[in-house]
Design a binder for these strands. Structure first.
Lengths: 142, 142
DNA sequence: CTATAACTGGATATCTTTATCCGTTTATAG
DNA sequence: CTATAAACGGATAAAGATATCCAGTTATAG
């Protein structure tokens, strides 16, 4: 369903989203998110380029989420590393339908669309295993 | 989203489902469904093994759908060649949640689940570009 | 019976994804 | 200023998905 790379990116973002004030090195993230260290470096780089996280070099450096976790959606993360692609034209190239997709690809694109919507409305914050939970509103159950 | 192989399998099934009484050779299906001929042979083989179509050898042979197109779901076709796999345990291996998935993987599995359901309730017949349309019930619009 | 059409299956090639390695650059600590 | 910690980036390797090739088997037409 999702590429391995997207999985890794999401795990790393979730890790970064818990305690966003703290900067973490790729190594720390690697063990926290269980991602092969050298590969994670590449993935984090993609997230940096997408503007979702910032990377600081040098001693004491590391990565940090940019902006509040409540504003970072799963879709943004996925699209940063491995974009969901909607089906825009029928791969069979049947001109018969004009701009419309054939029934098969209409259905398949609908499926992509609903995933896209689900991902667009899910924030990284809501996926955090240990939400910043300070008010009476927090009733996380086991 | 879907592997290329699954795409090919679906196209071939849709082709076979229109006029299911007629047997087609791999070559015919190849040009009809726009699938590389030698690769299609492999894919058709998977569908045969899954019991969705039958292959007859020798001169005059070819492939035919088994059973009515209205009973063949997209899910069956997809699972025959490239199974959707539900997430059963958290890849992070956090024992903390017991049998439950962590919020991230619960959400991701929900997405797979909804795709699975959508595919399970969509028949190949409903995807046919030229449905066997004989009654007044057929009001296919452009 | 023979030639031919067609599926079957193994071997191989190519491409993409995933993963690893290592040198370079950057910044901080001391 | 020097040593060190860390991100960055290029080259390479391993694995899997996709695609091609071709010999083997099976069945039918004539």
């Amino acid at each position: 369903m999702l590429s391995q790379t997207a999985e890794y990116a999401l795990r790393a973002m979730v890790a970064l989203a818990t305690r966003p004030e703290r900067s973490r090195t790729a190594q720390e993230l690697s063990s926290e998110a269980k991602v092969p260290p050298d590969y994670l470096a590449k993935v984090l780089n993609l997230l940096v380029r997408a503007g979702l996280i910032s990377g600081r070099r040098g001693r004491g450096g590391g990565f940090q989420a940019i902006g509040p976790a409540a504003k970072i959606t799963v879709l943004k993360v996925v699209n940063a590393v491995d974009p969901l692609k909607r089906i825009k034209s029928c791969p069979l190239g049947l001109e018969a339908h004009g701009e419309n997709l054939c029934p098969l690809h209409r259905k398949l694109d609908d499926a992509v669309k609903s995933i896209e919507e689900a991902f667009a409305t899910t924030t990284i914050e809501s996926l955090s295993a240990t939400p910043t939970c300070e008010g009476a509103a927090c009733h996380a159950t086991a």
